[in-house]
């Protein structure tokens, strides 16, 4: 009866996202075909030159490949770190579960920049990490970890781990405990039960986690910029430099579109490859 006026309440939100999300994306694609002009954001006329440039110049292709590989590595590392945490969380109940949720969720509520800065303090030359290693005699002079790829990867894994833990935890909680008892009652070892039953059944949580982390890692800007010290050229830093360093908006837009497209292609391939598994565990 009151369906129409009620639906109208959604109008502001729809307009907000249409105007300030969808239109900007259209604008980004348009921008990537505009001509560059030194001394201005962009010039007159349209051209596909930027894409030609991006596809042929080693600098850009290298950065793209490095970004995707980097993201794949970080996603894998995230999964390895997240699975035990999610498993442990999914078995906890009551106050303990609450505490664990707080541990996992708190980092989500704190900005990426702050968390990265925390790592800077920890791995600083005279920071606690180096001093602990020195005291244990593992090393005889402090390691220089700041502005290394290793630290960037570590910090990114830290940033994205909650995104992976929470959906896997949900999926693990949704597994009917009777299934595990059934498996064990049939004489299957715990190890085999894990690989044959639990792991596949938790895939509905892993798949979205993997996709989300991969996409976010591909386009992560803050962490490489702060902890990588601009030395490693990854796609996001390259894009931002082009946009606010050299003010070549059309080229920056083309780079961004390339990055987004490449990430999307990987996600689609991954979804297709895991489609059958998803269908099976859902049923």
């Amino acid at each position: 009866m009151q369906r129409l006026p009620r639906l109208a309440l959604g109008l502001p939100a729809v307009l907000l996202l249409l105007v300030f999300l969808v239109l900007p994306y259209a604008e980004m694609i348009t921008m990537s075909f505009r001509a560059s002009q030194p001394g201005a954001m962009y010039g007159l006329g349209f051209t596909a030159d930027h894409y030609r440039k991006v596809m042929t110049e080693g600098l850009y292709l290298d950065a793209l490949a490095r970004s995707l590989l980097n993201a794949a590595f970080i996603t894998t590392a995230c999964l390895i770190v997240s699975y035990p945490i999610a498993w442990h969380m999914s078995r906890a109940r009551g106050r303990k579960a609450l505490l664990l949720y707080a541990c996992v969720a708190s980092p989500l509520m704190i900005g990426v920049l702050i968390r990265n800065f925390g790592w800077m303090i920890v791995v600083n030359v005279d920071g606690p990490f180096n001093r602990a290693l020195l005291a244990m005699g593992v090393i005889d002079k402090p390691m220089r970890l700041l502005f290394t790829q290793g630290l960037v990867a570590l910090a990114l894994v830290h940033v994205f781990t909650p995104f992976m833990v929470l959906p896997i935890n949900n999926a693990l909680r949704n597994i009917n405990p009777a299934v595990l008892e059934a498996s064990e009652s049939l004489g299957v070892s715990r190890f085999a039960t894990f690989w044959k039953v639990i792991f596949p059944l938790s895939f509905p949580g892993m798949q979205p986690g993997l996709i989300l982390v991969f996409v976010l890692a591909t386009a992560a800007y803050v962490t490489p910029a702060l902890l990588g010290g601009q030395m490693v050229s990854l796609m996001p830093t390259l894009v931002v430099q082009t946009l606010i360093g050299t003010f070549d908006w059309p080229l920056g837009a083309a780079l961004a579109v390339m990055m987004a497209t490449a990430a999307m292609v990987v996600v689609i391939l991954f979804s297709l490859a895991t489609h059958r598994l998803m269908e099976r565990v859902r049923a």
């Binding site: 996202l17 954001m41 989300l212 996409v215 976010l216 386009a219 946009l243 837009a253 987004a260």
Partner: peptide, 23 residues
């Protein structure tokens, strides 16, 4: 639809908005 800004990387949204707001 409502959660799109969460599902696509912040950097891309920022770039699109940079161009659009300028326009």
């Amino acid at each position: 639809g409502m959660t799109l800004p969460l599902l696509i990387p912040e950097l891309l949204t920022a770039i699109g908005l940079l161009f659009f707001l300028y326009k």
